[in-house]
């Protein structure tokens, strides 16, 4: 029997190498790729169990297009059978719900400040006009598949496949340039 520990960066001895930090100032683009990400999944006939697991953890049932913040993590329903948890990992779920660490699978870039939405509009057609805290928008950012989570009114978290991380980072830095958003 082979366990899935090889998927979890935290299971390895050396600390992972990736810049993570906060940048002070009104507008910032920050690499938050090492935030823990866990995918909860269930079979097509067990969606009620997944919804119940989300409700137990967050106090609210999952709703499409809405992420729920609870205990340092954002619970992001992607489909009725899949929920992405961004932040502190959830307790091991009971079957039929299962969990897989996908921390390394997603790059995560925080874009904050009053011009955050204007910066995103340079590279994405996602409609953020009515996006408030907790809005979750899957779509395309700079022509790559991405998920945008509105953590606060002026703070967006952009999740995309880690293979696109360098491209997306460079693209966001370029898009942020006219708005003088700092990055790190």
């Amino acid at each position: 029997m082979i366990d899935l520990g090889f998927l979890d960066p935290a299971a390895s001895t050396p600390p992972p190498r990736s810049p993570v930090g906060d940048v002070p100032g009104a507008g910032a683009l920050v690499d938050r790729s090492l935030v823990v990400k866990t995918e909860l999944q269930t079979g097509p006939d067990d969606t009620a169990e997944l919804a119940a697991a989300v409700e137990r953890a967050t106090g609210a049932p999952p709703r499409t297009g809405r992420a729920i913040e609870a205990d340092g993590a954002w619970w992001c329903p992607l489909t009725p059978t899949r929920v992405l948890v961004v932040g502190d990992p959830p307790a091991t779920p009971a079957p039929p719900v299962s969990a897989v660490t996908v921390t390394s699978g997603f790059a995560a870039f925080g874009l904050s400040g009053p011009t955050a939405r204007a910066v995103l509009a340079r590279v994405s057609a996602l409609d953020l006009r009515r996006a408030d805290t907790g809005t979750l928008l899957p779509g395309s950012v700079a022509r790559v598949p991405a998920i945008v989570l509105c953590r606060r009114e002026d703070e967006l978290l952009i999740l995309a496949g880690s293979a696109h991380a360098q491209y997306l980072w460079e693209t966001l830095v370029d898009a942020a340039e006219p708005s003088q958003v700092t990055h790190a």
């Binding site: 998927l7 999944q41 079979g43 006939d45 299962s98 996908v102 390394s104 699978g105 496949g161 293979a163």
Partner: peptide, 19 residues
């Protein structure tokens, strides 16, 4: 196919999670 067969299976793409 899974959407049609509805087997008790979870499929996760870990292409970019793993090098």
């Amino acid at each position: 196919w899974q959407a049609d067969w509805r087997l008790d299976v979870r499929i996760t793409d870990v292409t970019q999670s793993l090098s």
